[in-house]
């Protein structure tokens, strides 16, 4: 599988309701060792939503200060985004991701701590 097989795929819950599309794939660095990189990146879950631009702006990050108007717009745009734990994914096929749970059981994605490069 490739990342592009997931990104943009339609996400459907247990009852066949659409939750939008896969906007991002959250990775956690606790997989099997990958050479010099160390622990590999494992899929932790999916960020799903109806609005494409919301998570790409980066204003949903913790510790990022946005002008209040931008922050408010970003919040409105991302209000329907949900985090799907990978364990709830039943099937990925033909640009469609099927879940074992219901859409209203899912929570909003937790903001990740920092922007890339901010730590160095």
């Amino acid at each position: 599988m490739r990342l592009s097989d997931l990104l943009g795929a339609e996400v459907v819950d247990r009852d066949g309701r659409s939750l939008g599309r896969v906007r991002d794939v959250r990775l956690v660095q606790d997989g099997p060792i990958q050479g010099t990189f160390g622990a590999g990146l494992r899929i932790e879950g999916l960020v799903v939503g109806r609005v494409a631009v919301a998570s790409r702006l980066g204003y949903d990050r913790e510790g990022v200060e946005a002008p209040w108007l931008v922050a408010r717009i970003a919040r409105v745009l991302s209000r329907d985004s949900r985090h799907v734990p990978w364990s709830d994914v039943v099937r990925v096929a033909d640009r469609r991701v099927e879940l074992a749970c219901r859409g209203d059981e899912l929570l909003a994605p937790t903001p990740l701590r920092h922007l890339p490069g901010a730590e160095s």
Partner: peptide
């Protein structure tokens, strides 16, 4: 140096392109 194990990142936002 590579980051500590257990960190999280969003693939499209932080890796793609």
């Amino acid at each position: 140096m590579s980051a500590p194990a257990g960190r999280m990142l969003d693939a499209a936002f932080e890796l793609l392109d």
